[in-house]
Nucleic acid binder design. Structure first.
Lengths: 149, 149
DNA sequence: CTTGCAACTTGGAATCATTCCATTTTGGTT
DNA sequence: AACCAAAATGGAATGATTCCAAGTTGCAAG
């Protein structure tokens, strides 16, 4: 597996360099925080977590860094309804399951074939660069402990 | 086909009554405007269109009425990224295609089987009440004139 | 009818995530 | 060691949406 699809702390410096961007303590910390607890935090939640280690950081910087990570392709934005944007370092193709009872968002791994099946439903002339699949419902406790928010 | 899944102007009074709500000129007009031009307008766009016929209406009322129509089940909200919410009177199960070049949103009819296929990818313990599928890409002009925005 | 009143509408203020901006700081080069 | 573009910072601005308090209206009961 190439660094491009991995989600490890060291991928950051490489990715930044590839894009002609600098590695900064703020960017490194924010990326580390995202990898550390993969519960799809909002910018504000990231801000809170990051302040514990770097009290002087500003919310604007958190937004800036998250944006940078998204540009680099190391992090994906997840938008559910009109709620604040959430950030996800899982680069594998996956869907999201929004548990309406708990408010948690779980990652759902997808079988490789599903995307071609979905593209097949598009009428001629439609070229899809990406598909986003979001389930909404409720899940039994601890089905996927790692992705509970 | 029952009134419940139709999208015609007369379904409104019935649906409102069923929910113990009143039929008002504002609600009727807003619903009519949505049926009239199915281009997934924002609340603001609905406001503009509705003012032409009812100049005294307020934006707050437009939000209120749209919310009421959503509650009744006659209209669905469509959220794309962080953009303003759009409103859609198409009650048939369908996906959305967001054309990044034009900004337009097209409805994509889905074959009936697709939902069970998608539910099949959920791990045990996950109960999906709904699925939302959004494509992002570009489409050739006039592929679906009726749903171009 | 007409009265009563809860439901509805209205305009303006408030909210809140996010972006913008002007200024200061910093990483890395010459 | 000086330089400078890139980055960080705090605070103001933005924009969609919601909230609120006051005025209006649909309609059911008398």
């Amino acid at each position: 597996m190439s660094t491009a699809t991995q989600t490890n702390p060291d991928a950051l410096a490489q990715r930044l360099a590839d894009s002609g961007l600098r590695s900064t303590p703020q960017r490194e910390l924010i990326y580390r925080v995202l990898l550390d607890k993969r519960d799809h935090p909002t910018a504000d939640q990231v801000f809170t977590r990051v302040k514990a280690e770097l009290p002087g950081i500003s919310l604007a910087t958190v937004y800036n860094c998250l944006e940078t990570l998204v540009q680099c392709g190391l992090v994906k934005q997840v938008n559910l309804e009109r709620e604040p944007t959430r950030y996800c370092p899982n680069l594998h193709p996956h869907a999201h399951f929004h548990d309406e009872r708990t408010g948690a968002t779980h990652d759902i791994d997808l079988p490789p074939g599903i995307f071609s099946e979905l593209r097949a439903v598009l009428p001629p002339g439609y070229e899809a660069a990406g598909v986003e699949i979001t389930f909404r419902g409720s899940a039994v406790a601890d089905a996927h402990p790692a992705s509970v928010q």
